[in-house]
Design a protein around this nucleic acid. Structure first.
Length: 304
DNA sequence: TATCCAAGGTAAGTT
DNA sequence: AACTTACCTTGGATA
């Protein structure tokens, strides 16, 4: 067991672990106590969370990492040295103060940033991000998380850690073995064939979400829509939450509501043009950060 | 207790 | 290209 601490002083712009992992941008973390997405969010709490690093991250076998907030900083425990992995996954190298400073002065953005200051975007592993957002269609956050947990238990490798058994998210080849019927039994509904087909595409080498990382933003989004069950919105989620395209603004129901209520001139009809308009309104370079704060703020009852 | 509704959309078919 | 419609499932709201 290795442990470590990342002090608040090393986290420019602060940190909020709970908001980061329970905001609906990532489905890779779970609370050790079993809870998640409580109506009464214990904002800034010190609960332990865990994730299972895939072999693509460790470069070896999957490894469990536990993390929790302490005095504003982050402490962790794992079977491996998790420091660099946490910096990568939780974007601890982002300077939040600088990002907020480059965000347009706007009542909604200010309220959202003020409510959850310290929340960071994530850099999640590409394949599971792709799958989780295919599962997200017309679905509630807590249920999307439940689906990912069931996929891991059903198709992923068991990982022993601290006397307990955890499950890695299935690799493409493992998930490609899943039948549509079995996926429906796990509660994926009409998303079942989408996940099955997409897993096959990645496992067969027909396409890989990582291939989008080297493309210009809009080309990268187009590339990802070749996966079954992936339209513009899900593609934007993968670009923003996994591949580091911080300018991506997924046009989900909450953001579309925000556009209707606060930025009606940004509604240009098509996804492509509306996306461009709201991206500019949100400051361009870090528009995705603004999107995620606004999403979480509105979803948790915030208003301006 | 029964019914209805919407949830971080996408694919397929029409106009 | 823009517009419709079907699609699994289920917790929570409404009757």
């Amino acid at each position: 067991m290795e442990t470590g601490r990342i002090p608040l002083a090393a986290l420019a712009g602060g940190f909020d672990l709970q908001a980061t992992v329970e905001s609906g941008q990532t489905y890779t973390w779970s609370r050790e106590d079993g809870g998640m997405y409580d109506d009464e969010l214990a904002h800034g709490g010190d609960a332990w969370y865990y994730t299972v690093l895939p072999e693509t991250v460790t470069g070896d076998d999957p490894a469990v990492v536990r993390a929790r907030q302490f005095d504003g900083g982050l402490e962790w425990a794992s079977s491996v040295d998790a420091h660099d992995h946490l910096v990568e996954l939780l974007r601890l190298d982002d300077d939040l103060d600088a990002i907020v400073a480059r965000t347009p002065d706007d009542p909604l953005l200010a309220a959202a940033y003020d409510a959850y200051r310290g929340m960071r975007l994530v850099r999640d592993p590409p394949f599971r991000t792709l799958v989780s957002f295919i599962c997200s269609a017309q679905m509630r956050v807590a249920r999307i998380h439940g689906m990912q947990t069931r996929l891991a238990r059903e198709f992923g490798d068991p990982v022993a850690f601290d006397g307990e058994t955890y499950y890695a998210f299935p690799r493409p080849d493992q998930l490609a073995e899943a039948t549509e019927e079995r996926l429906r039994e796990l509660g994926l509904g009409y998303r079942a064939p989408y996940v099955a087909r997409t897993a096959e595409m990645v496992a067969d080498g027909e396409a890989h979400p990582l291939a989008a990382a080297d493309l210009p933003y809009e080309e990268a989004r187009d590339y990802l829509t070749r996966f079954v069950g992936v339209g513009d919105k899900v593609a934007d989620c993968v670009l923003l939450f996994s591949l580091g395209f911080l300018e991506a603004v997924p046009l989900d129901t909450w953001i579309r509501t925000a556009i209707a209520d606060h930025y009606p001139e940004c509604d240009r009809g098509s996804y492509r043009e509306t996306s461009r308009a709201i991206r500019e309104r949100f400051g361009g370079e870090y528009a995705g950060y603004a999107q995620t704060y606004v999403f979480f703020y509105l979803r948790t009852g915030g208003s301006v």
